[in-house]
Amino acid sequence: MSDPILIAAGLTRELPGDPPVLLVGGADLAIEPGKFTAIVGPSGCGKSSLLYLLGLIDRPTGGQLLLEGRDMTPLSGDERAAIRLEKFGFVFQFHFLLPEFSALENIMLPMRRLGRHTPAEIEARARELLSFMGLAEKAAKSPDRLSGGERQRVAIARALANDPLLVLGDEPTGNLDSANSARVVDLFRQLAHEQGRAVVCVTHDPEIAAVADIRVSMLDGRITEVLRQA
């Protein structure tokens, strides 16, 4: 077992109200690099909410979140955006590509925003990622000219653009047929096992849950079980 890069301690998210609505309550979780973690549970159990907290998209109302030992809770919105840009990659159920940009341009966006590389390097890396996804010849295509599976693979390529430590998926196969679904699952395992990234997926899909290294079960906003699978 390697050292976790992301640790949630008593992570809590409540929606204000009387009484407040509990989305996530006291979640303790360690996310490890090189492992594929699946968060499972029935609809409305708070697994997506937990993912948004882990991904610094949402702010917890209680508890702590440590990324590489550093507490993320007091950071400003801009600081969290900068960390998301550099260290996180998101894949959602719907592909969520920007419709005005081609597949290649979509993948280039996070790299251009980070601005660490020259435009030529950025384009080269984007093409490389597309080839890795088996979509080299679709570079110039607009998202609405791609199939559902292709779009999701472009979205994964975009998530990988800035070489993130963590890849977070919110039902990434929820909208795909079984063949494409299997392909995406393979990709995610590859990202964890071959590239050493921490991969966290929220899913309904029992197949994903079955192949995950760590399986986190949730019910009513609370983590009920963390299971290491061989």
Partner: peptide, 11 residues
């Protein structure tokens, strides 16, 4: 989407 990618509010 852009916010999740890491674009800031200012962006």
């Amino acid at each position: 989407i852009m916010r999740s990618i890491g674009f800031s509010e200012g962006d």
